[in-house]
């Protein structure tokens, strides 16, 4: 039976059956408009996050305390840019151009991960970002690697491999500092005190307040709820913290034998929504940096187009 003869309802049912069977949806397959829109929202937000994420770490490239650390940080930030590029390409398969996505981002319509609205104030923040922020991203992305949309899931498989390196290098920065001088230990602890709670917020609102979760779970774009993933991150991170003698700033963090999970204190959701809605420490600055980069690059992009057109007309004339 040809797809052309099916009604919208039949198509949607067929789509859901495929999802239920665990089939992967590819760009040319029929998909409900809401599925396409939600994926564009999620994937472009993810790409923007990778790009904005270059800023807080880029902030320390020129001051990295050793040449080895400088090289590793450069490589890492370059990876982030590469991830952004890769996910932008993946998102384009859903019928949106990079210009449109960029426009959504620069006008503030599209969001990016709020974690990057926190400042990087000492070198240990490079460790905290690698260990906690990339660690949280890995928990999210390992699951996304099994999501129903082919281009997204494949991008996540590749990106997770690199994120695992980032996670290790971040942890190693902190482990080294925790074995170092008192000043280094203080820096490391300070970084964790500032980044722990915002990292937990990276998993999004609590399940009861997560407006997009229902559909995304049904479509197998998400496979676990925000709270489940957050718990997974906490459970794997606490022993790592103990291992290097760093304290996580939550007095209620405690192993719960009955649940088989760590209990934790309440997340400050007011702060979460403030930062999402533009009232975070670096929101203005990050957006300004990205907008300035775009504006300052306009003459470059214009020149590329002009040069290509000259080349084309030379070819035609020849």
């Amino acid at each position: 039976m040809s797809i052309k003869n099916l009604t919208e309802e039949e198509l949607e049912k067929r789509f859901h059956d495929r999802i239920e069977k665990g089939e992967i949806i590819e760009p040319k397959d029929w998909m409900p408009e809401r599925y396409r829109k939600q994926l564009i929202r999620m994937m472009s937000q993810h790409a923007h996050s990778e790009v904005v994420g270059m800023l807080p770490e880029g902030n320390w490239i020129t001051r990295a305390p050793s040449l080895r650390r400088k090289a590793v940080l450069l490589a890492k930030v370059q990876d982030e840019g590469g991830h952004g590029l890769y996910i932008y390409c993946g998102t384009e398969t859903l019928g949106i151009s990079r210009e449109e996505m960029l426009d959504g981002f620069l006008t503030g319509k599209a969001k990016y991960s709020s974690i990057f609205n926190y400042p990087t104030l000492n070198w240990a923040d490079m460790g905290a970002i690698g260990w906690l922020v990339d660690g949280a991203a890995i928990v999210n992305q390992t699951v996304l690697a099994k999501c129903s949309y082919g281009p997204y899931s494949r991008a996540m498989v590749r990106i997770c491999k690199e994120e695992n390196f980032h996670h290790k290098q971040g942890y190693e920065i902190l482990a080294t500092m925790m074995k170092g001088t008192d000043a280094q230990k203080q820096m490391a602890q300070d970084a964790i005190n500032r980044f722990w709670w915002p990292s937990l917020m990276m998993f999004g609102p609590s399940d009861k307040d997560s407006p997009n979760s229902g559909d995304l779970l049904k479509w197998k774009v998400k496979l676990f709820s925000n709270d489940e993933l957050r718990q997974r991150f906490i459970d794997r991170t606490v022993p790592q913290a103990e291992n290097i003698g760093i304290k996580l700033p939550d007095p209620l963090l405690k192993w719960n034998e009955a649940k088989g999970h760590y209990d934790h204190g309440d997340i400050n959701w007011e702060e979460f929504y403030n930062v999402i809605n533009g009232r975070g420490p670096c929101n203005k600055q990050r957006m300004k940096q990205r907008r300035d980069a775009h504006i300052n690059g306009e003459w470059v992009r214009d020149a590329v187009v002009a040069h290509e057109e000259k080349k084309k007309s030379e070819k035609v004339a020849a």
Binding site: L74, Q289, D292
Partner: peptide, 25 residues
């Protein structure tokens, strides 16, 4: 390295940090 995050297009951001990385090496 000062260019990181400020390039005119993403591809060039990556290219400049890539060259920077070679230089540090």
């Amino acid at each position: 390295g000062e260019w990181c995050g400020h390039g005119p297009i993403l591809e060039e951001d990556i290219a400049l940090t890539n060259i920077s990385l070679d230089c540090i090496g």
